[in-house]
Lab assay of single mutants.
Amino acid sequence: AQFIESYVCRMCSRGDEDDKLLLCDGCDDNYHIFCLLPPLPEIPKGVWRCPKCVM
């Protein structure tokens, strides 16, 4: 059997509050909206890229 790795935030390495986890459309990394600098108030609509992919 294969275990699917749960999504974890690249900043805090936690997978809780998954309703606040953002998936980068560039590299598929995950980030909590409140772990980003600056934090986001809510999940953005449409395409989102993490700080690494925006640079």
Rank of each mutant, 00 (worst) to 15 (best):
D28R: 15
S6V: 04
R10L: 12
M11F: 08
E42D: 13
C50D: 01
L21W: 08
D29G: 10
M11D: 11
R10A: 08
D28W: 06
Y31E: 03
C27Q: 03
D19P: 08
D29S: 03
F3H: 10
D16G: 14
P38I: 02
K45I: 06
K45P: 11
G26L: 10
Y31H: 01
G46I: 03
G15C: 15
Y31A: 03
C50N: 00
V47R: 13
V54A: 08
V54F: 03
F34Q: 11
K45W: 04
P51A: 06
D29K: 15
G26A: 14
W48Q: 03
L22Q: 03
L21P: 02
Q2N: 12
D25W: 04
I4H: 09
L21K: 12
L23Y: 08
E17N: 15
D16N: 14
L37T: 11
V54R: 09
M11K: 15
D29Q: 15
C50L: 02
V8I: 06
C35N: 01
R10M: 11
C50S: 00
L22F: 03
C50T: 00
C12W: 01
D28G: 13
I43F: 07
A1V: 05
M11S: 08
S13V: 09
R10I: 11
C24Y: 01
G46W: 04
S13Y: 08
D25P: 04
S13H: 06
D25R: 11
K52R: 12
L22C: 11
R10Q: 03
E5T: 10
C27Y: 01
C9E: 02
C53R: 00
D28T: 03
K20N: 05
A1G: 07
C12N: 02
F34V: 10
G15T: 13
D19Y: 05
V47E: 08
I43M: 14
C53N: 00
L37Q: 09
P51K: 14
D29E: 12
L37N: 15
H32P: 01
W48L: 01
L22D: 00
I33S: 08
V8G: 09
E17R: 14
P41M: 03
K52E: 06
M11Q: 13
I33T: 13
R49Q: 14
D18R: 14
W48F: 06
I43Y: 05
Y31D: 01
C53W: 00
L37C: 08
I4S: 11
R10V: 08
Y31T: 02
P41V: 11
C50Y: 01
H32D: 00
M55D: 13
D19G: 13
F34I: 05
M55W: 13
D29P: 05
L36P: 02
L21V: 05
A1P: 11
F3E: 09
S13G: 13
V47H: 10
G46A: 11
H32T: 00
L23K: 15
L37E: 10
D18E: 13
N30E: 11
R10P: 04
V54T: 13
Y31G: 01
P38G: 04
S6I: 04
G26S: 08
S6D: 03
L22V: 08
D16E: 10
M55I: 05
S13W: 06
P51M: 10
I4C: 09
Y7V: 09
D19W: 08
V47D: 10
D29N: 15
G46L: 07
F3D: 04
C35I: 00
N30Y: 08
K45N: 12
V47Q: 15
V54N: 06
G15I: 10
F34T: 13
R49L: 08
Y7H: 10
K20S: 12
N30T: 11
D25E: 06
C50M: 00
A1Y: 08
V8Y: 08
D29C: 14
L37D: 14
Y7E: 15
E5H: 06
E42V: 08
G26Y: 05
G15K: 14
F34A: 08
C53P: 02
I43N: 07
G46Y: 04
C35W: 01
S6W: 04
N30R: 13
C27F: 00
C50E: 00
E5G: 09
Q2C: 04
D16F: 15
Q2V: 08
C35D: 02
G26T: 12
N30K: 14
L36E: 03
Q2E: 06
K20P: 11
D16R: 12
Q2I: 15
K52D: 14
L36N: 03
E17C: 15
I43K: 09
A1C: 03
L21D: 01
K45V: 07
I4K: 11
E17Y: 05
V8C: 06
Q2H: 07
C12M: 02
G15S: 14
C12S: 01
C35F: 03
P41G: 10
D19T: 15
C53K: 00
K45E: 08
L36I: 09
K52F: 08
D19A: 13
P41D: 12
L36V: 09
I4F: 10
C27I: 00
E5Q: 12
Y7F: 08
N30C: 12
P51S: 14
D19L: 08
D25Y: 04
W48T: 00
C50P: 00
Q2L: 09
R49V: 06
S13E: 15
E5M: 14
D25Q: 07
D18N: 10
P51T: 03
G26W: 04
K20E: 09
P51N: 11
L22Y: 00
K45S: 06
E17L: 07
H32E: 00
C9I: 03
V8F: 05
N30M: 07
C35A: 01
A1M: 14
L23C: 09
D25A: 14
C27T: 02
P41N: 08
C35K: 00
C9H: 01
M11C: 10
L21T: 08
L40F: 02
I4P: 09
R49S: 05
G26R: 12
K20V: 06
E5F: 09
M11H: 05
G46E: 15
S13A: 06
K45H: 11
W48H: 01
D19F: 09
R10W: 04
L37V: 10
M55G: 03
R14T: 08
W48M: 02
P39L: 03
D28Q: 05
D19S: 10
C9M: 01
C27V: 02
K52W: 04
M11W: 07
L36Y: 00
R49C: 03
G26C: 12
L21H: 04
S6T: 14
C53Y: 00
P39M: 05
M11T: 07
R10Y: 07
E42W: 05
D25C: 06
Q2Y: 11
D16H: 06
I43Q: 13
E5W: 04
V47I: 09
G15V: 12
S6K: 05
C12L: 05
D28P: 15
L36F: 06
R49D: 01
R10G: 08
E5Y: 08
I4Y: 02
I43G: 05
M11Y: 13
Q2D: 14
K20I: 03
F34D: 08
I4D: 11
D18G: 15
C12V: 00
C35R: 04
P51W: 07
P38M: 04
S13K: 07
W48R: 02
K52L: 05
S6C: 04
